[in-house]
Every structure is written in structure tokens, then in C-alpha cells.
């Protein structure tokens, strides 16, 4: 699998964490205080708590359950219950490749060596959940295999979240309000047809 857009850059502010999903794999997206984005498996190795509920301090993410803190490489750097202990190297969050480009946050679940697709000249507007499989949404715009769809002055970047749902990240050269209304109308039509 290649790069998948999981959020608009503007929707993940500094020192915040949020959940995301790619084909059933749960992710914790977080942005450090200095602005660096990360995509990790959404599970603290200690007790399985979702890391997307965690909190950011500086360049680290901490689990909300017991405060276990993880550095940029996913390695555990601190266990508050044992302040004097250096955590074993084996305690590590699952990390994925994650970059920002064209106003989107891109994640690759498998190793990739290419850069994410270039989307020139359009402004990110919003992300919309569609309760329809990705390939049906893509087919609605003409090509079931496509993950990037160009329609008039819009670009949709599609993210499959699971077998039945996807998210369309909308970029546009049009007035954001117009773009927003357009994607809402498309969504209603697609979900109506699928239903």
C-alpha cells in the first residue's frame, strides 16, 4: 500500500493528538510542540490504551492511562510509576512513515521510498466521512481504482477507513463555502445510491 492521506494539516494543531484509520488499522496522529507530525499504532504497549487519547508535552506523546511517555522514534522514555527506571528499549509504540505535503498529512503503513502525490494549486477545504466503500465513491467519479479524483475545480483525496467507510479530503480552487456545499451534495448522492 502506498501513501494514504489521513487528515488536513490544519486539523491537527501543535501539541494535539487525534485518531485516524486506514483499512481497519487504528492510528494515533499527533503533532509535537515544534510542529512535527507522527502516525503511530493507536495502542500503548503497556495496557492497550488508545494513544490518540494521550497528551503531548514538547516532542513526546504520553498515554493518558499511566502517563508512559514516548519519544519521536516511538521508544518509551519515561514510566511515571518508576521515575528512576530507564525503560527497556523493547517498550516501543508502533511507528509509521508520516509526512506533510500539499496541506495534507500522509501515512504509509508499509515501507515506501517515493514521495506522496503532488497536488498543486488547490487549497485544503475539509474532510468528509462517507458511509460508502472507497472504491464505490471513486467509481461514482469514473474510476473505481482511483484514490485521487479531480472534478471541475475540486480534488478529492480518498482514504479508505474500513470495508464500508471512507473519508474524502477536499481541496479546491473555489470559494470554500461552495466547495463545502458541493461535497455535501456529492456525499448525499453517493450514500443514497449505495443505500
Amino acid at each position: 500500500m502506498d501513501w494514504v492521506a489521513v487528515a488536513l494539516s490544519q486539523d491537527l494543531r501543535n501539541a494535539m493528538a487525534m485518531p485516524a484509520r486506514i483499512d481497519g488499522t487504528d492510528l494515533a496522529l499527533w503533532r509535537s510542540m515544534s510542529g512535527q507530525v507522527h502516525a503511530w499504532g493507536d495502542r500503548c504497549p503497556h495496557r492497550g490504551m488508545r494513544l490518540s487519547h494521550g497528551f503531548v508535552r514538547g516532542e513526546t506523546l504520553s498515554c493518558i492511562y499511566h502517563g508512559w511517555q514516548y519519544g519521536q522514534d516511538g521508544g518509551c522514555t519515561s514510566i511515571p510509576a518508576h521515575p528512576k527506571l530507564t525503560p527497556p528499549k523493547t517498550i516501543c509504540a508502533t511507528t509509521y512513515q508520516c509526512v506533510e505535503d500539499g496541506g495534507l498529512i500522509w501515512v504509509a503503513l508499509n515501507e515506501v521510498t517515493t514521495a506522496p502525490p503532488t497536488l498543486s494549486g488547490k487549497t485544503p477545504v475539509r474532510s468528509v466521512q462517507i458511509n460508502t466503500p472507497r472504491h464505490e465513491v471513486a467509481a461514482h467519479f469514473g474510476d473505481a481504482e482511483a484514490t485521487i479524483v479531480n472534478a471541475v475545480d475540486m480534488t478529492l483525496v480518498l482514504q479508505s477507513t474500513d470495508d464500508a467507510h471512507c473519508i474524502a479530503h477536499v481541496l479546491s480552487t473555489a470559494d470554500p463555502k461552495v466547495a463545502s456545499r458541493w461535497i455535501e451534495a456529492q456525499r448525499a448522492e453517493i450514500e443514497g445510491v449505495a443505500a
Binding site: P45, H46, R47, G48, M49, R50, I79, H82, T90
Partner: peptide
């Protein structure tokens, strides 16, 4: 919000400390 929802009894999936 714990994954998995069931409690893992076999060591390995989760990492306990003292």
C-alpha cells in the same frame, strides 16, 4: 478505549512493570 477489549492473559501482548 483499550485494545483489545478482552483481557489478554498470555504475557507478551502487554508490558507490565513492578
Amino acid at each position: 478505549n483499550q485494545i483489545p477489549r478482552k483481557l489478554p492473559l498470555d504475557p507478551g501482548l502487554e508490558a507490565p512493570t513492578q
